[in-house]
Simulated assay, not measured.
Amino acid sequence: MKAMLLRVGIDTGSGGTLGPIFKDGSFEYIPIPEGYLSEEDKTYGNTIGRKGFPLSTYVSKILKDVGMHFDPEFKTYTYGDPTSKRSSLLRLQKNDLLVFYAGLKPYNQKKEEAALYIIGYFTVKEVIDFNLLSTEEREKYCKRCKNNAHIKRMEILGEEHLDDLVIIMGQKNGSKLLDKAIKISEKGSDSIGRNLHVVSKKMRPIFGFEGSIQRSRPREVKEEYVDKLKNLLFVE
């Protein structure tokens, strides 16, 4: 069994801000803006978060009526990657873990600083490489994954938008958007002095690696560390 960590959610490069985390550790998962034509009808303004306020409460006013790229989605547990030719997610197999983390900043807490937090996870049910599917198989999986943001793009952009797409499907009883985020980073720097989010000292013995996790590329957790990660997440 293996696990991968993957950064998701709105950030300063895609959306101009970070999602909020509150004093009790709860948070709002805020997706990035949708950059393509899509059938997605959820906007930051019309989507109510878990705290009872529109997600537009936490982002720039100019995003209020902008559609969101809900990926991952935690209704039917799918995540899409449109780069299968180089996607490390193809190494995942059934029952592996795909763990999602996001940049979050304390809401109305001036003294606290932004950091990276685990916000949820999938226990893998299936890994779907659309490049390997027939037209009939693609149609079947499009129906099964209709809540995924990339499938909602395809409905407008056409079937060619499925080329190079990988979708990870999570098991219903083994996948979750957490109630409270788990902090995994601390401040660090690279060889030329740039400030970075790096794996915290507390998390290094759990992940089995250290260094920057600021970028969104998946980071693999070696098999011998997966049980520690499962214990952190309370995965059965």
Rank of each mutant, 00 (worst) to 15 (best):
S84C: 06
K146V: 10
L157H: 06
L97Y: 04
H69E: 09
K172D: 09
G67Y: 01
T57R: 10
R144G: 08
G49K: 02
K176Y: 00
K187G: 15
Y121T: 10
T78L: 06
G52H: 04
S60W: 00
V166L: 12
L132H: 07
E137Y: 00
K61T: 03
K152D: 07
I156V: 15
R138G: 12
S84D: 05
P82M: 08
E155C: 14
A102F: 01
L165K: 06
A115E: 08
L90E: 03
I118G: 07
P106W: 01
T57S: 10
L90F: 05
Q93V: 12
G158E: 07
E155T: 13
T78Y: 07
K140L: 13
G49S: 06
A115N: 13
L178Q: 03
T83A: 15
K183F: 00
G170D: 08
K105C: 11
A115H: 11
K85G: 13
G188P: 01
R153K: 12
L177V: 07
S84T: 04
L133C: 12
F74W: 05
K187L: 15
D163Y: 00
M169C: 15
L132G: 11
S189Q: 12
L92Y: 01
L98W: 00
L63D: 02
N173T: 08
E73M: 01
Y79S: 04
L104Q: 03
I151P: 14
G174K: 02
H161D: 15
T47M: 05
Q109E: 14
Y101T: 02
E160Q: 10
S84V: 02
E112K: 14
D163G: 11
L132K: 15
L63V: 04
Y107F: 15
K146M: 10
P72H: 03
T47I: 03
Y117N: 12
S175L: 08
E155K: 15
L104M: 08
V99D: 01
K105A: 15
L89N: 04
D81V: 02
L178F: 03
N131L: 11
K64H: 06
M169S: 14
